[in-house]
Design a protein around this nucleic acid. Structure first.
Lengths: 339, 339
DNA sequence: ACTTGGCACTCACGGCGGCCGAGTGCCAGG
DNA sequence: CCTGGCACTCGGCCGCCGTGAGTGCCAAGT
């Protein structure tokens, strides 16, 4: 009972602060939320909450604001996931259904997510690792140079220019194409790597060097970049937050330009089936210590294709943002699964 | 002589202001730059320059800062193009030479340009319009759905998923592939559109509907997106500028997220063979009225592949930035031309 | 054992006034 | 046409003070 009201007070503080961005005091709190107790009581509760480290005061004699720990408790125990409005659902659908190809799906998703949440959105391109090889095409650019095009069943297309030490004619190219497709088509990417490594051993000696070169490149394309790229949108939303935020704005922008950082942020959320929230320092990125990251994986069932999420100030509408991330991920997963 | 010194004063003002970001006064000006005249004389010149609209004072009794018109005169008549240091040239080379494919070239270029200039960099993906069709590949995803892959001699790969109303078997797909490649391969994109439009008329009736569908998609892919995409980097550099800039930061970021705006900015510079500078309102984008855009086309000789450039504050090192843009464009042009 | 009203205290914030100094315009003399 | 001198302007800075929101503590009430 005592404990219960304290939590209620914490929730009220978080909700108020998210809306107003101003330290919230005992009086306004007791008024706005029907707590049924006097400001003095609220003060006692706040005092206790502060001692436990859930809230803090920016300076003596000002209201309280939640700490990282306070937000964490709020997210874990005090907030549900706000359902999206009908209009928002419709927006998701109409925004995504015009996509012409895989890249377009990703670019539209990231813009959509940025608009819905009014935060910075990040969407990882679907990774190759859980897809299979659909087709390998080799195009002769000139006798010493080939273009290798790799198509997966998720609709992803990878391309590589390959320099060949000794010239090849079209017949040989045809043979190579046949060999690669014959042994790799239909394989899942993880399996393909093993098969490809052994392939050169089994063929006519004169094809071997070329095939070795090609399989090396294929493997590179499959492994090295398999989950490398991300799309970003909504950086302008960073300026929406309060001004004190502006000091760190530069560092946040710099961090967001690092693909590695972004991958780390959403990559770890990929595997869990649910929406994960990392608050403040939990992001493990120093420049983002005053932000929160809400991320999830997308893709149907066990076949996770990639991750997506948003980056925003700690002072954020967690229920609403979590709902938006979940909804977009679900929809994109279905969209890609249908292909 | 009189005229000449006035211009010298303008140049000194621009250079000083670019370095210090503070209104520059007559005294410091006469000291720092060896003008050989007294502050009072400089004052008279400044007064004249102000009357002609080249400089202005932010408030009474403060130094002068250049106006749009002043920067324009500076760029047109007073500044050369600062040659790059040897280290910078080497940096360009080593940064770009590891690129694995076309997308990689673009992404590396844009980062490179952002680093060199410490501004926001924009690079347009090479457009299809001046390239020719290298190969068209059709892959069966399922009987009602094909994946069309279009490869150009610039190494660009476009992909499209095509829904087919009535199922097709592999034999038909092979025929279609042959027809498309037979008639389009080697054509320049602009010519290909005409040929493709007539193609269905000339074939067996049973292939016609499918071929119509496919050519429609090919044409779409060729025309609609031919110069659509751009890469962006270095937005964190926007925060480098003075704080008054911060007010408009949000609008600048928003403008930079609009592909259309970016294309407009660098698109118009594509065709001219030189580096073009647009200052302040000359950008024709309201949100960018306090910025300048330095852009150029890249690609060898008459075959312009795309545009690239940087966006930065009006208060910018024009000679240095122009040199960097020109150098990167030249190098990228050569790199792509070699393919 | 909680809750509540009262009360003294703290401190960020905003407005006010005065000083300072960089910078200007003008003018008379070289 | 240049120059030194001079009076003037005005934004920025600093210190001061009043105000008010908010707090912590305490004693009384339930």
């Amino acid at each position: 009972m005592l404990e219960e009201r304290r939590l209620e007070v914490l929730r009220a503080i978080v909700e108020d602060f998210v809306l107003s961005n101003e330290p919230v005091g005992s009086k306004t709190l007791a008024e706005r939320h029907a707590l049924g107790v006097s400001p003095a009581t609220v003060r006692n509760d706040m005092s206790a909450l502060e001692e436990e480290g859930y809230i803090t005061q920016p300076h003596t004699s000002a209201g309280r604001i939640p700490t990282d720990k306070g937000y964490r408790l709020f997210v874990d125990r005090l907030s549900g996931v706000k359902p999206l409005s009908r209009a928002e659902r419709r927006a998701i659908q109409s925004f995504l259904e015009g996509a012409v190809d895989l890249d377009d799906v990703v670019r539209r998703s990231v813009r959509l997510l940025a608009q819905l949440t009014r935060q910075v959105a990040v969407v990882q391109y679907p990774s190759l690792s859980s897809s299979s090889v659909r087709h390998i095409e080799i195009v002769t650019l000139n006798p010493n140079r080939l273009l290798l095009v790799l198509i997966t069943d998720t609709g992803r297309v990878e391309q590589r220019v390959v320099d060949i030490p000794t010239p090849v004619d079209d017949g040989v190219v045809g043979e190579l194409r046949g060999l690669l497709n014959g042994s790799l088509r239909g394989r899942r990417v993880v399996d393909a790597t093993e098969v490809a490594a052994d392939l050169p051993e089994t063929v006519r000696p004169d094809l071997r060097p070329h095939l070795t070169t090609l399989t090396t490149v294929v493997l590179e394309a499959l492994l090295e970049r398999q989950e490398e790229r991300v799309a970003l949108a909504g950086t302008a939303n960073l300026t929406r937050s309060s001004v004190d935020f502006a000091d760190s704005l530069r560092f946040i922008l710099e961090a967001l330009e690092e693909q590695v950082v972004l991958l780390k942020l959403i990559g770890s959320a990929r595997e869990t089936g649910t929406v994960t929230v990392r608050i403040g320092r939990e992001t493990d990125v120093d420049a983002l210590r005053s932000t929160s990251v809400i991320a999830t994986g997308y893709g149907l069932g066990p076949a996770v294709l990639g991750g997506m999420g948003v980056v925003g100030p700690m002072r954020m509408d967690y229920p609403g943002t979590m709902a938006a991330v979940r909804a977009v991920a679900k929809y994109v997963g279905e969209l890609l699964g249908a292909d």
